[in-house]
Design a binder for these strands. Structure first.
Lengths: 198, 198
DNA sequence: TATTTCACATACCTACCGTATATGAAATTC
DNA sequence: GAATTTCATATACGGTAGGTATGTGAAATA
């Protein structure tokens, strides 16, 4: 068929809008991004945007969901590479720190996301990074590796520590020097959840 | 003198604007707060606001600084009540969690603050909460209570964990049930920084 | 008392978000 | 396959808000 089907066109336009928004939000921040500029860069107008996403918040939610999903799968893979489950949890945490050094992640997911969409635990598309670490923590608790703390609480604390560390590193004068310090401190902190030997 | 001196008037007006902004930002969020409404509630106009704070961001910075200062002094007092320095650090962390349950603190300091002003470590008025915990951590490292990790990194991780925990608690269905879980997990996590016995 | 300063008010401009309406090409129906 | 309906996107409009330029009147100064 020469002309694409309607659903295909719509899916493509949605993707283009999300891509343009992702770029614009990352560069100018959510508040500073103009819907007109955004849509024009995607070769569309605001009409398409409002039809697909309802409003500016809806567009941000879609962008955040995309990035969050990418981060979660990548962290999952990183953690799965380790044979020892405990090393897996640490690797996952460090992976979050390193991924969160990306300005795009910082601006969109860590700063504007919570401010506009509220706490990550109740984002429209449940924060997949949080779910991922929660599952891993719960598994380690079952295996008797971690202290029997609440899995949701532990996951949230680990995640909060890691992502805040990334913001701190990025804001520092020399991120390269600071990253290892953060990694070391994070591993020390996380070891507090371990059962038995320090 | 019947008429107040100029500097007194200006200080009073600044305080009124900050108070009105604090209320408005807390209720409607930074983006949703209107400068006209704000200043009207303070019995002034936008002229006073721009003269005193430069722009909307400047006003937010002043409000954040005020709240941050209140939090830091309160945390400092809470920590000082404990005789054991280690207990003091834990108490301070828990105090941050509890203070951050205040909707005003959440909305202004934890959500809008970082999104608008950037990372807390480089706020116009250096984040006093961070400085407070950093000093306490450094002291404990000197005393040989904590592992010799980087004090800034450790403080940032602890702070991030505590404040994210508060956001999580507040967003949960029953904060009262969740708070103790978060406290327990936080103390477990923090123990990872201790030197020697678990 | 005359003059200057300056804290604040007023007026204006521009940008942008959201909505209501229009349009034209698929999709459906007969 | 022609007519009709659907609907994804475009266009037009209104209201609001933030920043700036300018005005003003009272306190400070000389």
């Amino acid at each position: 068929m020469v002309a694409k089907k309607r659903t295909e066109m719509m899916a493509e336009n949605r993707a283009r809008l999300i891509a343009a928004a992702r770029k614009s939000f990352a560069e100018k921040g959510f508040a500073g991004a103009s819907m007109d500029d955004l849509t024009a860069q995607a070769g569309l107008t605001r009409g398409a945007l409002y039809h697909n996403f309802g409003d500016k918040r809806g567009l941000l939610a879609a962008v955040v969901n995309q990035i969050d999903g990418e981060m979660a799968t990548r962290a999952q893979k990183t953690g799965a590479q380790k044979t020892d489950p405990w090393d897996g949890l640490l690797a996952e945490g460090v992976a979050y720190i390193e991924m969160a050094l990306d300005p795009e992640v910082q601006r969109i997911v860590l700063l504007d996301g919570p401010a506009v969409l509220g706490d990550p635990s109740q984002w429209p598309s449940q924060n997949q990074c949080l779910i991922e670490t929660r599952n891993r923590v719960a598994q380690l608790i079952d295996q008797g590796v971690l202290k029997p703390v609440d899995a949701d609480a532990a996951a949230r604390l680990l995640s909060g520590a890691a992502l805040n560390a990334a913001l701190w590193i990025a804001a520092s004068d020399s991120p390269a020097d600071v990253l290892p310090k953060a990694r070391e401190a994070f591993c020390a902190l996380a070891s507090g959840l371990r059962l038995g030997q320090p």
